[in-house]
Computed example of a mutant assay.
Amino acid sequence: MSANVKNDQDFGEKPTETRDTDHYLEEYTTGFVDKWDDLIDWDSRAKSEGTFFIEELKKRGAKRVLDVAAGTGFHSVQLIEAGFDVVTADGSPEMLVKAFENGRSRGHILRTVQADWRMLNRDIHGHYDAVVCLGNSFTHLFNEHDRRKALAEFYAALRHDGVLILDQRNYDTILDHGYSSKHTYYYCGDNVQVEPAHVDEGLARFQYRFPDGSEYFLNMFPLRKAYVRRLMREVGFQKIDTYGDFQETYREADPDFFIHVADKTYIEGEDR
């Protein structure tokens, strides 16, 4: 990193030992959040995703959507413009400020809520047709109890026939075969480098380098696909479809990301 570019993150003297769920609040600093849109590039990401999420929600008749990992507001704005009634939530106040600014610049007033997923239903009101948790955000939970509690809160926030859509990196391939990324769907910004600085079974520490020489890090838990699906089932979701980079059919090693679409609808006699 060039000497004149300041990084306002602090991981302490042993960054790879920072494996705490709540540390993400310190990782999404104002400096990093200000660059986040350079990383994802809204126009390029909208083009790469197409209407996948919109179609999944519309075919279920969803109207009221809770975006629990809103980040800088990309999906909240996309869903509002597609006609959904959206509540925008995130654990990071810096992200919510940026999301509100982004929404306003596009002619929308986002309804924002700062919420800890583990106590989600304390901070939100009513029930939703859909909960979306996107941007590899579930990976910020390092403790299995936290993951189970968050999924239970998502489940409770849904109407009886609601749907949870949750995505994650393909950590199976990273752990088993090493890292490679096409950067086709999620991180579409020009001249932004994203790669792991450290990976083991309990930590994926990703480094983000920007054209101005600045670099930032996120410490995340490398979730395996089958493990996430199992937790979803144990919370109560009976039908879970998993897509690889928005495709229903894929080779396990190919996708950069997996998208889990979990329906809450009760299926009588279903063998779980």
Rank of each mutant, 00 (worst) to 15 (best):
E268Y: 09
A3M: 12
S92H: 09
A82Y: 03
H125P: 00
V192Q: 01
F53Y: 15
Y186R: 01
L141C: 08
G31R: 09
H177Q: 13
C188M: 10
A262H: 00
D271L: 13
K182R: 11
R19V: 02
D37R: 02
R209D: 08
V86P: 04
P15A: 05
K225L: 08
H177A: 12
V132W: 12
I259D: 00
Q168K: 05
L57K: 04
D8T: 15
R224L: 11
E26C: 09
I124H: 05
L66E: 11
F217C: 00
H183G: 06
E234I: 05
I109E: 14
A99L: 04
D41R: 10
D256F: 01
D20F: 09
R19M: 06
A150W: 08
Y24W: 12
L158C: 06
H108V: 04
R148F: 11
G31F: 12
G73A: 03
N191G: 02
D263G: 08
H198P: 05
P211D: 03
T249M: 11
V87D: 06
Y250G: 02
T21N: 11
G83Q: 08
L25T: 01
R148E: 09
A204V: 12
Y187E: 02
Y171N: 14
V97G: 00
V87I: 14
S181W: 04
D146I: 07
Y155V: 00
V131R: 03
E17L: 10
K98N: 08
F237H: 00
K14F: 15
T29L: 09
Y24P: 02
W36K: 06
H127V: 10
R64H: 12
P222S: 14
T18W: 09
S105R: 12
H108C: 05
T112I: 15
V192I: 13
E26P: 00
A82V: 06
R251Q: 15
R64V: 08
K98Y: 09
Q247W: 07
F74L: 08
V235K: 00
Y171Q: 11
D67Y: 02
F84E: 11
L110I: 10
V261S: 06
P93H: 05
E27K: 04
E49Q: 12
A69P: 06
D37G: 08
E195S: 11
Y243H: 08
G244K: 03
D263I: 02
C188I: 03
T29K: 10
E26L: 11
G73T: 05
A70T: 09
D146C: 02
N143W: 00
V228S: 02
G244E: 02
E270G: 00
R19Y: 04
D90W: 09
D146H: 15
R19T: 11
E153Y: 01
I259T: 10
D212W: 04
Y186N: 06
G202K: 12
D10W: 13
D161K: 13
G61I: 10
F210W: 02
R148K: 14
V228L: 14
M95N: 07
N219R: 05
D241E: 15
D200H: 04
N102W: 03
G236R: 03
H260N: 03
H75F: 15
F32Q: 06
G162M: 07
R19A: 02
D254E: 14
R159I: 11
A3R: 15
Y187W: 11
F237P: 02
L203R: 07
